[in-house]
Structures are given as structure tokens and as C-alpha cells.
């Protein structure tokens, strides 16, 4: 039978070697409301898209004000990535990838504009502005009609032309 002294010694050993399963437990709980301020991820199925809407015409105006410096008129000729399609991809040069001929999901466009653009002031756009810019760029790339508007429901339904063009390299690692 274990004596009380031996049990105490074993408890100390367990602590000293970290053999007890209990971790430090120093994380603080965080509520859904607090998380909402952090969590800006938009998923391919539209999960995470905020309320709001915008049209391609509105997006064209915002583009002319806030994006044209780097991306050029109608998305060509700027220092940053061209935003117009260049037709089908005919080489292995990644520089040929554009929204219309390559991007597999429309959600990516909304998510990236919202988190990363404009370069000098990311996260300064309203949800309506992001919807409008997304609509403008998708219309420029002939993915949606020029007169079309976008909101959470319509954006989630868009099937991009290259949706099936990507091959998972090592599926066994997922």
C-alpha cells in the first residue's frame, strides 16, 4: 500500500516531469461577439459574407477613385496585377493567371479585397464597397453581367469558369 508520504512524492514527480495531463490552462475564454470583430474569413460556400450589396457600376466608380493608381484603367497597365482576363492560359507562367481565367472561387475576391485592399489602407472599405468592387471585377472578367449586383446570396452562387481547374497535389496530406 502507498503511504501518504510516497503519494506526495509521486505527485511532485508528476509535476516536475510534466507527466500530468493537465496543461497550464492560461487561455481566456472569448465570446462569439468578441470573436466577430476578429473573424473576417469568408468561405467558398459564402459563409462569413456580411450584409450589404453593390453593383458593377458602383464598383467602377470606387475603382476609379481607390484602385486605379496601382491597377490601371479598367484593371490594365498598372504596377500591380492586371485584373482583366488574358484569354485561356497557354503557358506555365503564373503571370497569366487572372480572375476570369484562373480564380476558382468568387468568395476569394471578396475576402481578399476586404482584408488586403487598397494596399495603403486595407480594411477601410465598407461591405457595400467590397460587394461593388467584386461585382465590377467579375463583370470586367465577363463572369457576371455588367448590370448585375451582388450580395451574400448571389455571390455564393457564382461558379467561376476555372472552378475545376485545380488539382490537389497531395490529397493524402489533408
Amino acid at each position: 500500500m502507498f503511504t501518504p508520504k510516497l503519494i506526495a512524492a509521486l505527485a511532485l514527480l508528476a509535476l516536475a516531469t510534466g507527466a500530468n495531463a493537465e496543461g497550464p490552462r492560461l487561455g481566456k475564454t472569448i465570446s462569439a461577439e468578441e470573436l466577430a470583430a476578429w473573424d473576417s474569413s469568408v468561405m467558398p460556400d459564402g459563409n462569413g459574407l456580411p450584409e450589404g450589396s453593390g453593383t458593377a457600376a458602383q464598383g467602377a466608380q470606387i475603382f476609379a477613385q481607390k484602385c486605379v493608381t496601382c491597377h490601371g484603367e479598367k484593371g490594365v497597365g498598372g504596377s500591380a496585377s492586371a485584373l482583366l482576363p488574358r484569354g485561356p492560359i497557354t503557358s506555365i507562367n503564373g503571370g497569366e493567371k487572372t480572375i476570369g481565367n484562373f480564380w476558382p472561387y468568387a468568395s476569394t475576391l471578396f475576402d481578399y479585397i476586404r482584408r488586403a485592399m487598397p494596399w495603403q489602407q486595407p480594411k477601410s472599405l465598407t461591405s457595400n464597397e467590397v460587394y461593388a468592387l467584386t461585382a465590377y471585377l467579375l463583370a470586367l472578367n465577363k463572369v457576371i453581367d455588367e448590370g448585375a449586383g451582388l450580395d451574400a446570396a448571389t455571390l455564393a452562387k457564382i461558379k467561376m469558369p476555372n472552378r475545376d481547374g485545380l488539382i490537389i497535389r497531395f490529397p493524402d496530406r489533408i
Partner: peptide, 13 residues
Amino acid sequence: SQLLPNGKAYQFY
């Protein structure tokens, strides 16, 4: 994502 000669691309390399 890595373009391949056949116009497809690898993803999650």
C-alpha cells in the same frame, strides 16, 4: 498554385 503544361494547376502543394 502551380500551372502545369496542360493548363491545369496544382493547389495545396
